[in-house]
Amino acid sequence: MATPDRRAATLALAHALSAAERGLPVIPLSRTKLPALRSPHRDAAEPLLCRGECGRPGHGVHDATTDPAAVRALFAAAPWATGYGIACGRPPHHLIGIDLDTKPAKDTASDAGTTTATAAPTDATAALRHLALRHLFTIPDTVVVLTPSGGRHIWLTGPPDVVVANSAGRLAPGIDIRGTGGYLVGPGSVTTHGTYRTAPGTGHLAPAPCPGALLRLLTPPARPHSPAHHPAGGPGSGHGLVQFVLAAHEGQRNTRLFWAACRAYENGIGDSLANALTDAAVHTGLTEREARATIASAARLSACGRGCAPGGP
């Protein structure tokens, strides 16, 4: 390993151990911001629903731990790791991450090479302000992490009996939510695009409780399940969820599939709709294995929301 990487790996472990000491479960990340350890089941013929029960590392956010010895073991198994992820939704903090993306306007070029239009800028910070004004809440003083791309991660905590799902752009364009089953890149992590840093004046703060009005936006009530029969394509048949997945573009296929599968399971039609959702996801470009693994994750999360231990993954 090159010297700069060794130094980055040493710093990543130090930052991860510091976070774990504050009760934040961590995993090692590579420079791509993905979990540094590959799944031990990657060569299995069928996707396995293992979340670490096999005892081997490589289960992504399910490996996250606050135990210093376990943290050191994870990083020893991934000496190329230059960052760390912090699992959301886990006790004691039940962390919720508000990921604000800020991108400047971009010119788009025509086939002839001339500038023809300007794409609208993404200002998630302004969008969050509008949401706060509309729904009468204020973001409290809390930990804020600055991303290399100019965005921000706002750290909040949630109640132990509330499961906040991951989402991308559901609240507003540019606002992504990191909840149960997701993770935030920890400050001090070195990635391909730069280093994540704590915003000045927030490093000494503890994550603040999520305002009630914002929490309600993050956890919309599930529609009551009705066992009544629905005709094909009618309300409750799942046709709209399948169409939602079919409309996905590259970069949002997995997110749309996960959201649709969660809604299907919340409405009691997950198992019956799984094959149709899989076919739709494959049509958009996912492999069948990827699609079924995502649907299985949604099934686990929905089951967790109905009765597993509070704050669990």
Rank of each mutant, 00 (worst) to 15 (best):
V245N: 03
E250C: 12
A280R: 03
R256L: 05
V245S: 09
C262M: 13
W259D: 12
P231I: 02
E266I: 01
G233P: 01
L217R: 07
P221F: 07
H249L: 12
L277I: 03
D271Y: 07
R216P: 08
H230W: 03
D271F: 05
G234R: 00
R216K: 13
H230Y: 06
H229P: 15
R216C: 09
V242M: 08
A248K: 05
L218Q: 06
G238A: 08
A280T: 03
Y265L: 05
A276P: 03
R253E: 09
L241F: 04
F258C: 01
S272T: 14
T278E: 15
A264P: 12
H229W: 11
H239K: 13
D279Y: 11
P220A: 06
L241G: 03
F244C: 04
D271C: 08
A260E: 00
V242P: 04
E250R: 15
L257P: 06
A248I: 00
G236P: 02
P235I: 05
N267L: 14
G233K: 07
A264L: 13
N267F: 09
Y265C: 11
G251S: 14
G251W: 12
H239G: 11
G251Y: 09
A281M: 12
Q243N: 15
E250F: 14
A232C: 09
G270F: 01
Q243K: 14
L273K: 13
A274V: 02
A274H: 05
L246Y: 06
A248V: 05
Q252V: 09
A232K: 00
F258T: 07
D271G: 15
I269Q: 04
T255Y: 06
L218W: 01
S272N: 11
D271S: 14
V242L: 09
A261Q: 04
L273E: 02
R216L: 11
L217G: 05
G236L: 01
W259G: 08
P220T: 10
G240E: 08
G238D: 03
P231V: 10
P235E: 03
T219W: 09
L273T: 12
R216F: 11
T219V: 15
E250L: 15
I269R: 10
A248D: 00
G268A: 05
V242T: 12
P224Q: 07
Q252P: 00
R216Q: 13
A264R: 12
L273D: 04
A228H: 13
A264C: 14
V245R: 09
Q252M: 07
G270W: 02
P224E: 04
R256G: 00
D279C: 11
L241Y: 09
H230F: 06
A281L: 12
L277C: 01
S237P: 11
R263P: 00
Y265H: 14
P227R: 05
A248R: 04
G270N: 01
N254T: 15
A222W: 10
G238N: 05
G270Q: 01
A228I: 14
T219L: 08
H230L: 04
C262Y: 01
A281W: 08
S237G: 14
G233F: 04
A260F: 08
L217E: 03
L277T: 02
L217M: 07
Q243C: 15
C262K: 08
